[in-house]
Simulated scan of single mutants.
Amino acid sequence: MTQVYDIAIIGGGIMGCAAALRVREGGMVPIVLDQGDLGQGASGVNAGTLSLQIKRVKLMPYALKGHHEWERMGDAVGFQKTGGYTLAFTEREAALLHERQARKASAGAPITFVSPHRVHKAEPKLAQKVLAASYCPEDGYANSSLTGQYFRGRLRDQNIAFRERCPVTAIDRAGDGCTLATSSGPIHARRLLLAAGAWLKPVAALLGVDLPVQARINTVSVTERMPPLVSTMIGHATGLLTMKQKPNGTVLVGGGWQGRGTPQGGRGQVTAASVQPNLALAQYALPGLARARVLRSWTGFEANVPDFYPLAGALPGVGNAFVLGCVRGGYTIGPYIGRLMGDFILGREPELPLFDPARNFDQETT
């Protein structure tokens, strides 16, 4: 007898897996499909930064909830709550810092402004050029390379079927359900959730839907093991730097600097034009990095739509189909918005509003 799943979820990253777990709690039988390995797309190659100071104002309630989800996962995902400082070195940067962080504090983030003296007392190896700074005690990070391992275990614990290295090549709509053509044979489901991250556009095209999805190619670098240099998350007022030192002594440096490539072309390419200024800013903030060798730099695709808010809701024009993804900072909010999506699919009222995929997309950068 052919198995018919209640819902097929295309995309085994944080959001797709979190949604699968939620619908399973509600009594549905899901299957999760990924063209690679679970959690090895954007969910597994980012810098792991969990900072409220770099989240957009409108997404702050989701980021706060997401932080709690990561904290509950704990050691299984390498969660560390270190607190974090965001630094400004010039008057222009200081004005930008105050304007942005005051709005985020008003949205509920526990962000305060602190003196350069306090920064240097807490982090004496930072540059003595700090003009202004903000602090958030909730900031920290997780180990993104553990994402797939964690969710693979959670899915198994809940007896949720999943198939890795199983790309979907066609979707046939028949009645109220669908049949997915995959590399491991056809899969039948009553509902469909597209949660394929940077690959959402070609997957939605299989259903005749053109989603306005683009992809950023973010670059991350890691140094060799170093003596203790910094104990908290460090960022910059422009948003062009995130930096943390792991317990093993390596320093992870990110900040959204762009590489080259497209999701359809495989892994993106690192460029010196991005890595060099990223590392130069990190060294400016933390001079001790001048003695560190960079062991590796890599890229990860981050999907977005023109307004940089999530797609989360019913897929326009297709019955019993849903879409979830496309948000800058999706690592932080992923476990929580995946739960909200699960509630929506179950017919429940989500705790916080979702983001209608059929909305008008206007450029917005708040």
Score class of each variant (00 low, 15 high):
A204N: 07
K246W: 07
L281Y: 11
S274I: 04
P277K: 10
I217R: 08
P287V: 13
P227Q: 04
H236S: 02
R291N: 15
R225G: 00
M226G: 02
I217K: 11
T238A: 13
G300D: 10
T299Y: 12
G300A: 15
V270M: 04
L211D: 06
T242N: 12
A215Q: 03
G261E: 02
L240R: 06
Q264H: 04
V294F: 10
Q258N: 01
A272V: 13
K201H: 15
V294P: 02
R216K: 14
G255M: 08
A292Q: 14
P202H: 15
S274R: 02
A198W: 12
T238V: 00
W257A: 00
G235M: 14
T232W: 07
Y284F: 14
K201R: 15
G208P: 09
V213N: 03
P287M: 09
S231E: 12
A280H: 13
A237F: 10
S274C: 00
R260V: 07
D210A: 15
G235V: 07
G208M: 08
R267S: 02
L207K: 06
V203A: 04
S231L: 02
R216Q: 13
V213I: 12
L200Q: 14
V203I: 15
R267Y: 03
P212Y: 11
S274P: 02
S274A: 15
T238Q: 09
R293Q: 12
L211Q: 12
Q269M: 13
G265M: 00
G256I: 01
S221L: 15
P212I: 07
T299A: 01
V294D: 01
L286G: 07
P212Q: 10
R225C: 10
A237Q: 03
Q276V: 08
G255V: 01
R293K: 13
V253L: 13
A292R: 11
V251C: 08
K201V: 05
L229I: 07
A273P: 00
L211R: 10
S221Q: 12
Q258F: 02
V294W: 10
P228C: 04
